[in-house]
C-alpha cells in the first residue's frame, strides 16, 4: 500500500486525526531539527524548538494552503520559531563574546576537528545569529532575497549585506 501523501495527512489532521499529524512529524522531524540546529547550534535547544515548530504548525494547519508543499512551509515555520527564540535571548554581541571566549578556552578541541562537515558546522556556529538565519534561508531553504526580506521583515539591502558578510566570514574560517 502506498504511503499517504502530505496533503491527505493534512486533511485528516484537520479533521482531528492527530495520528495523521504525528505521521507528518515523523516524516519531517529530522529535517526540521536540522533547520533548528543549523540556526541554534545547540542540540537540546534545537530539539525543543523543532518540537515547538511542529506544535505551532499544528495550530495553524487550517490556514495552510494545500496547493503548496508542506515541507518548505514547515521549514519556514521552524526558522521563524528559532529566530523568535534568538530574539528573546541575549543580545548578539554577548553571544559572540561568549562563543569567542569558549573557543579560546578549548583550542585543542578546535585543532582536533578534522572532518570537513564538523569544520563547516563550527564555522556556521561562529556566525552571529542573524547571519546564520539568512544563510539557512538562502542555502538550505532556497529562498530569494525578496522572500528572505519579507520573511524576516528586514530591508533587501540588509539581506544582501548579511549574506555576503556571512559568506566572507565562512570563507575565512574554512581556508
Amino acid at each position: 500500500m502506498n504511503a499517504p501523501s502530505d496533503r491527505d495527512l493534512i486533511l485528516r489532521a484537520r479533521r482531528g486525526e492527530t495520528d495523521a499529524y504525528g505521521e507528518l512529524v515523523t516524516r519531517y522531524q529530522t529535517n526540521i531539527f536540522n533547520v533548528c540546529y543549523r540556526i541554534l547550534h545547540d542540540r537540546p535547544e534545537a530539539e525543543d524548538m523543532a518540537q515547538e515548530a511542529f506544535m505551532r504548525a499544528y495550530d495553524r494547519l487550517n490556514s495552510f494552503d494545500l496547493e503548496r508543499d508542506f515541507a518548505p512551509w514547515m521549514r519556514r515555520v521552524a526558522a521563524n520559531v528559532c529566530l523568535n527564540h534568538i530574539s528573546s535571548q541575549k543580545p548578539t554581541s554577548e553571544l559572540e563574546e561568549e562563543r569567542d571566549a569558549d573557543q579560546s578556552q578549548r583550542p585543542d578541541e578546535q585543532v582536533e576537528v578534522k572532518e570537513r562537515g564538523e569544520q563547516i558546522r563550527a564555522a556556521l556556529a561562529s556566525l552571529p545569529p542573524h547571519y546564520r538565519v539568512v544563510v539557512e534561508l538562502r542555502h538550505y531553504q532556497e529562498m530569494s532575497y525578496e522572500e528572505i526580506a519579507a520573511e524576516l521583515n528586514i530591508p533587501l539591502s540588509d539581506v544582501k549585506s548579511h549574506l555576503f558578510r556571512a559568506r566572507k566570514l565562512l570563507a575565512e574560517k574554512l581556508k
Binding site: T26, M55, H139
Partner: peptide
C-alpha cells in the same frame, strides 16, 4: 564554498518529536 555549505550532512535526532501527537 556554496557547495560545501549545502553539502552539510543532516544530524540524527535523539528523540522522537511525534510522540505528543501519537
Amino acid at each position: 564554498l556554496f557547495d560545501e555549505i549545502e553539502s552539510l550532512p543532516e544530524l540524527a535526532l535523539s528523540k522522537h518529536l511525534a510522540a505528543p501527537f501519537t
